[in-house]
Design a protein around this nucleic acid. Sequence first.
RNA 1: GCGGUAUUGGUGAAGUGGUUAACACGCCGGAUUGUGGCUCCGGUAUGCAUGGGUUCGAUCCCCAUAUCCCGCCCCA
Length: 446
Amino acid sequence: MIVKPKGTYDLYGSEAKKWQYVNGVIDDLMSKYNYDYIRTPIFEASEVFHRGVGETTDIVTKETYDFVDRGNRNMTLRPEGTAGIVRSYIENKMYGDPTQPVKLYYNGTMYRYERPQSGRDRELTQFGVEVLGCDDALIDAEVISIPVNLLKTLGLKEVKVNINTLGDRESRDNYRQALLKYFKPHLKDLCPDCQERFNKNPLRILDCKVDKDSEILKNAPVTLDYLNEESKKRFDDVKKYLTLLEVEYEVDTKLVRGLDYYNHTVFEIEAQVAGFGSNNVLAGGGRYNGLVDLLGGPPTPGISFGMGLGRLMMALDLEKIELPISDSLDAYIMYVSQNEKEYAVTLTQYLRMNGYKVDMEYMNRSLKGQFKQADRYNSKHLIILNEEELQNDVIKIKDNKTKEETLVGIDYILYYFEEKTSSEEFTDEELARYLENDENSENMED
RNA sequence: GCGGUAUUGGUGAAGUGGUUAACACGCCGGAUUGUGGCUCCGGUAUGCAUGGGUUCGAUCCCCAUAUCCCGCCCCA
């Protein structure tokens, strides 16, 4: 048997319906924020990611899907969204667009050559946002607010926002020096991984899992103490705007991001979900004022977040959040014998073209089997064709909820359905959901 | 890249070194309900991940590979 590549999965069935729903919510939300959808290639010249992320990092050396195409070009499957979009921004000279800043969102698959484990596949889907051409702290806050609002819209209650700032380049460099100076005498007391990090990426020592409770880490220098006035002011502004946007947050001075191009605001958004373990970080991002420059464009400020939708779906599952997926047919058309099958085809087509969601029996099952099938599809109406009635120009429609049967003249089928659907009754489930979301009903427990 | 666990039919799963590998669900058909959702009966053909090995014989023992899940590294 041919099986799917390691670290990938097939999306189908009810799971696919959930994704479609979530994608719809995302599109809807981004429309309200007035962000434009952008789709860039799934593969890019390798240098887009290599230069953007850093040639020597683990990410590039062992976690990208690299290949040489038939024209001997080095290509890389995109491991993240930002670099490709920045390349597109530069190539399409979006910095000259009349509407500024440029506010973009994407939603697509990314590829990382990693050892798969929970919440971590080789092909993953990410939704994210990039705002280019604006350095105002307000944008930082808005970008943070988007994933928060998405999670809340979908029904996740416990959403935690951690923010920190690395300051501008000067502040960041000062801080890095301070860390090196501080950790040097303690080096032998740190875990082996941290000793490695000391050389490669000292900021990362701060969120080491092994040493996190040690005195050495607790007393380590804090970013905030190394900010210059301007950076400090900027961070205060971000916090002010977050409050205005009603986003609750915590400052986590140990929150750092690995890559060199990050500066100023960095953040992570986690869902407090029981049983989620260390994978509870659903979204993360930060400001990258140096990246456009680095990839050959004009110096341009930028900020982004990325969110793994796979983890998001896991969180929704663990929290047992039922998405309002409408999963029913308006009608299922069945036939008592083969003699009515052709008419069933015609009728199915007719109703579909008139806007109804309709399916029919394909398998020539027994009537009993057809009823079962109709129930599996959760069909609101059953149309049961039999020869005798057809000859009299009537068809039988059964309301599958009330079990009421009606004989309808062939020319009046649409009237029947119009009447049925126009009064727009709530189903019990819809009603329950409506009450849940109604603020007035907050105090009506039970 | 390193380490650990697992791998039985459409699904959930029992099981043993030796002729026909339980059971349940699902599905299909039939009986009975005026046309189903209950009950009863019957059926359910590339089944023990793949490749080697040990053995008279392996789904069950050993090795390798693949995949899955769980840690580590890393996390854009």
